[in-house]
Every structure is written in structure tokens, then in C-alpha cells.
Design a protein around this nucleic acid. Structure first.
Length: 556
RNA sequence: UGGGCCGUAGCCAAGCGGUAAGGCAACGGGUUUUGAUCCCGUCAUGCGAAGGUUCGAAUCCUUCCGGCCCAGCCA
């Protein structure tokens, strides 16, 4: 691990370690398997696993599976894959809150015996009424003073399935007048006659998050239970259970501000809606802010981890600029992605001063400053493709503004000759269909001779040896900075141009041999990845991860 | 208007009584066969505001202003 930026959590842990409060810290990442992990979870994963790594501790993966109605095995598998892909390792086997159900049940009985929990027959509507409001205290439930014996009997019968869903619930007996709503006799167990993905039909009562979480932490010996700010008000309740139960350890909860990124939504409900309504192709659509979506788009684990470090961890809620993620992605890819050339919008150029059967091959570096990335061969013949946008008929364009090809002038073909544009061929509709140009002899690997001033350098691919490819360009899914802001209207901010399909692209031959999920920098275009599912050597499919940084004013 | 929390540059963020780190963005300049990378430089007399304590305050106190979270048998 490289040196980490200091943050309040690291400070607390350093302190605890220094004071000898713990020999080794234990954290945990506790997703509920009810959806795919997104960039906010990536941050939480980096925080929890990262802190453990940084301080020589351990981090558990624990599925917080207390609600069988929303959870599925598919999500469990996807979550494990995402964490591993990010490069983190959880301690031992993944844990499940559901594997503590027996212990949790016994502790609930303990609370009943202590007179600290009771079975309440109020309906959820009635319970809401009794709960009071933010500014008015609640009233005690009429069932609050049931005897221990009666509660014991009722709770056992709840477990045995003698009552319908919602008929009753086990509640903690705390304080209906507490200014903290979480302390107004919170629910410990509710009846759900649903099979559970882990425990099958063993249970028909399920513990609530509040009741299960801290005790699960205690069972696992978690020392620092790190969650997001919205659970802050739950901490007194978390502590209450720990104090009143014979738990084997006393974990502590700490909260940090969740990650918000502009132009994106990070709520499982909203992401699920994008998937369910077919706005995107699935949870791993490259436009999704899910870990699997970003992976498919070509974002790397290193980029995500670095991004997480960059934004830091604090208690101040804010919105991080997407540009920071972009930076982290470019930084990693710039360093590690081999270079190649690809023409996305091909325009044929015939080099008229070369013989019909001309063939030669240039050797180019795999990366401008990394010899270990090797070299590649660039076949070259009389016909090549350049990008349409690299030619403009208007030769009056200033050299400063248009550093590409115009009639009568020169450009350097990257890694090859300098050429001069001689003639523009158009079809009946007046569209440019071809260029005639000539190569300047002796300019490969050499500076331009006197009197020849190339306007710039452009990329190209040999027409005969280039390989066809399909390329998908992605733009942000939403065209407003705060799609998450309002209520349910985030769908109206969808960017209709978030996906552009390009089918006639030509890439240099070296690309065809690459494995799925390999990233390249197509010079002057951006970073692209070979699609992990749909690409084959015969039918190349590439996803644009992100463009190069462009500082000039893009007009023309 | 009950409770909890948060305000340091356009954005993120260190700082914990000794005179405002760092990153992103932006803006200048240099190198460059990628308008990329890389390199150099600029960017808070100021820490939400106003008072107070102190030799000294972003750090302590008071008041005020702004924002976020909580009334699921969700997590």
C-alpha cells in the first residue's frame, strides 16, 4: 500500500492501536444482495478493505441478508465478482447475517427475559400513529406491558408460524418519547413467510437491520463498523443492543459521508429502474455507474481505487465532479494501455505516387515511454484510411486552428510518411469519397525537408491490412448535473445520445489478436477496451472508455 | 419549529492554539511524429457570518446563517 491521505477514520484507528485497544483491527463490507454494486459501494469497499490493509487488519465480506423479499443469489455472485475484480480479499469465506439467525433469536429471547423486548400486536399503520412525529413524542403501545411469560410464548409462536405477516412484531422496549425516532421501541423481528435464499424455509420471522447489524459485528469480532452518515441516528440503538446483550465483543460504529458524483444516480432503486425499463442493456451496461458496468466500459480497478483515494473520506457531504473520475481513469490508462491506431470514420486516401503493389511495414513503439510494452508492425500500402475529420476542404483554415490535412498541404502520417493532399474526389451528391495524395520520399523517421511544413500528425490504417471493427461510443447517461435531485423524475434527464454505434471502423491489425478486456489507447482518439462478452477476432467489438483530454477549442 | 450531523478556493480535501498541505479544474509557458503524456509556473491576507477569549484562532466560547439526515414491520 502506498501512503494514504490522512482522514478521520485512519486517525481513530491509529489511536486505538496506539492505546492498545485492539491488537488488530477488523472491518467489514456489508452489502445487502438486492442489486449490483455501484461506484458508491466501490468507495466503501476501498475504505473498509483499504483501512484493514493499511493497518494490517482484516476485512470481512458479510451479506446483510435480513430481508428475503428483495434478495437474490444472482446479486451475491455479482457482488463477490466485483470485489475480487477490484483486487480485494475478504477474510475466510464470505459471511452471512442469516448464518447468525439462531444466535440472534436467542438474544432476542434474552431481551424478553430482561423485560427489554415485547411482542406488539399493533398493525404497521397503528404503530406509525403511536410513534408520534418528529416534534411530538409517541405513545406507549397497549401491548408494551405484557408479561415476560406471555412475550416468550408469543415470540415462540411467531417463530412457529402461528401468526400472519404483519399480525405482530417483536419490539425493543426503549423510549417512545425519545427525540431520536430510532429509539421509539424499534422493531426487532417481523413476520415474513418467504423462503430465504440461504436459510430456505427454516424461518418465517426475520430480524431487522438495526437488531442484526451490531450483533453480527460483535460475533465476527469487528472492531470498526464503518457505515454512511444516514446511520448516524442509529448509533445509539446500535450501542443499546451491545450494552444489553451478552455479546462477545464491543464493536463501534463510525460514519462517513457517502460518495455522490454529478451526472449520475447511485440508488439501487433508480439503477434497477434503468435496467427494468430497458433504458440500458443491463446492470453491466457500460453507461451504468455500477462496478460491472464500469468494468465493461474499460475502467480499471487501479483507476477506481485511485479515485477513491483522491476524493478522500470525510463527514462532509458533497458532490464529486465526474471529471475527477475521468482523471483517474486516464491516468492509469495513459500509463498502461498500449498505443494503436484506429480510424473510426474512414476516408480513403490513395497515394498516387506509389506503385499499385507497394508494400512496406513500419515498426512502432507499443508505448511512447514504456519499452516493456514492445513494438508492433504497421503494414502500409498504396491505399490507406484516415478519419474524415482529419481532412478539411477549406485550405484557408489557420495552421493554429486546424492541424490536419487541407488541399495542397502536408501532414505527417503517424509513424510513417509525410503526405501532401493533391485532389479531392466527390460523388454526384457532392460528398467527399476519396482523397488523392502523394507521399514525400525519405520522410519516414526523418524531419520534413526544406519547404515542406506539415500542419500536424494524423493517424491512419492501411486499407488492405486494416481490420473492421464495431465501436461503441458512450456519453454520460444524464444530461444534468443532478439527476438524483428531484423526486422520481430522473428519467426525464436521460441523455438520448448516451450511446453511438459505429460499425465501419478500421483498426490496425495488432488489435485483432488481443484478448477481451484489453485496453488500448487509439492515438488521438481515446481509450478503448475490447468488449469482454461480445468481441471475437472475427467480429471485433470495442467500447470507448474515455477520450483523451482535449484542450483546444473544438470548432470547425 | 424535536433530534443528529455538516460548512476550508469552481469541486474534493488536510489541518486539532503558533500564522492555510495536496489533488481535480482553470490559466500562463516549455518539450513532443498523439492538439495526449511529461515538465515549469499562477491560482484562499483567507477557513459560512458576526462577536468574544488569547501575545497569537480555521482550530476554544457565544449567537446567527446555510445545507444534509430521521416519523419502513427497507438497508
Amino acid at each position: 500500500m502506498t501512503e494514504k491521505a490522512s482522514n478521520f477514520l485512519a486517525t481513530i484507528i491509529e489511536d486505538d492501536l496506539a492505546k492498545g485497544k485492539h491488537d488488530q483491527i477488523v472491518t467489514r463490507f456489508p452489502p445487502e444482495p438486492n442489486g449490483y454494486l455501484h461506484i458508491g459501494h466501490a468507495k466503501s469497499i476501498c475504505v473498509n478493505f483499504g483501512l484493514a490493509e493499511q493497518f494490517g487488519g482484516r476485512c470481512n465480506l458479510r451479506f446483510d441478508d435480513t430481508n428475503p423479499e428483495k434478495e437474490e443469489q444472482e446479486y451475491i455472485d455479482a457482488i463477490k465478482a466485483d470485489i475480487e475484480w477490484l483486487g480485494f480479499q475478504w477474510q475466510d469465506e464470505p459471511k452471512f447475517t442469516s448464518s447468525y439467525f439462531d444466535q440472534l433469536y436467542d438474544w432476542a429471547v434474552h431481551l424478553i427475559n430482561e423485560g427489554l423486548a415485547y411482542v406488539c400486536d399493533l398493525s404497521s399503520d397503528q404503530a406509525r400513529e403511536y410513534r408520534g412525529t418528529l416534534t411530538e413524542p409517541g405513545r406507549n403501545s397497549p401491548y408494551r406491558e405484557r408479561s415476560v411469560e406471555e412475550n416468550l410464548d408469543l415470540f415462540a409462536r411467531m417463530r412457529n408460524g402461528e401468526f400472519d405477516e404483519g399480525a405482530c412484531a417483536l419490539r425493543a422496549k426503549i423510549d417512545m418519547a425519545s427525540p431520536n425516532m430510532n429509539m421509539r421501541d424499534p422493531i426487532l423481528y417481523r413476520i415474513r413467510k418467504k423462503a430465504h435464499h440461504q436459510t430456505g424455509n427454516k424461518w418465517c420471522i426475520y430480524p431487522s437491520y438495526d437488531y442484526a447489524h451490531g450483533q453480527s459485528d460483535a460475533i465476527e469480532g469487528v472492531t470498526h463498523s464503518i457505515c454512511t452518515l444516514e446511520f448516524e441516528d442509529h448509533r445509539p440503538l446500535y450501542d443499546w443492543f451491545i450494552e444489553h446483550l451478552p455479546v462477545p465483543a464491543r464493536p463501534r460504529q463510525y460514519e462517513f459521508a457517502r460518495l455522490n458524483v454529478n451526472y449520475t444516480v447511485t440508488s439501487k432503486r433508480k439503477l434497477k429502474r434503468l435496467v427494468d425499463e430497458g433504458v440500458v442493456d443491463g446492470w453491466d451496461d457500460p453507461r451504468m455507474p455500477t462496478i460491472s458496468g464500469m468494468r465493461r466500459r474499460g475502467v480499471t480497478p487501479a483507476a477506481l481505487r485511485h479515485f477513491s483515494d483522491m476524493v478522500g473520506t470525510s463527514r462532509a457531504g458533497g458532490v464529486v465532479d465526474l471529471g475527477m473520475l475521468d482523471f483517474a481513469i486516464r491516468e492509469d490508462l495513459n500509463e498502461n494501455a498500449p498505443r494503436a491506431m484506429a480510424v473510426l470514420d474512414p476516408l480513403k486516401v490513395v497515394l498516387t505516387n506509389l506503385p499499385e503493389d507497394h508494400f512496406e511495414s513500419f515498426t512502432a513503439a507499443g508505448h511512447p515511454n514504456r519499452d516493456d510494452l514492445g513494438e508492433r508492425e504497421l503494414p502500409f500500402s498504396r491505399e490507406i484510411y484516415i478519419d474524415r475529420s482529419d481532412f478539411n476542404e477549406d485550405s484557408s483554415l489557420s495552421r493554429k486552428k486546424f492541424k490536419r490535412l487541407v488541399p495542397g498541404e502536408w501532414v505527417r502520417l503517424r509513424n510513417a510518411y509525410i503526405i501532401q493532399a493533391d485532389e479531392v474526389i466527390k460523388n454526384d451528391a457532392g460528398e467527399i469519397v476519396e482523397l488523392r495524395a502523394s507521399v514525400i520520399e525519405g520522410t519516414v523517421g526523418n524531419d520534413a525537408p526544406e519547404g515542406i511544413r506539415p500542419r500536424g500528425v494524423i493517424h491512419w490504417v492501411c486499407a488492405k491490412h486494416g481490420v473492421k471493427a464495431q465501436v461503441r461510443l458512450y456519453d454520460r447517461l444524464f444530461n444534468t448535473e443532478t439527476p438524483d435531485r428531484g423526486g422520481d423524475d430522473f428519467m426525464q434527464y436521460l441523455n438520448p445520445e448516451s450511446l453511438t454505434l459505429l460499425t465501419g471502423c478500421i483498426v490496425e491489425p495488432s488489435i485483432a489478436k488481443a484478448e477481451p478486456e484489453t485496453s488500448f489507447q487509439f492515438e488521438r482518439e481515446g481509450y478503448f477496451v475490447i468488449d469482454r462478452y461480445e468481441s471475437t477476432p472475427e467480429n471485433l467489438v470495442l467500447n470507448k472508455t474515455i477520450g483523451l483530454k482535449e484542450v483546444w477549442e473544438r470548432k470547425v
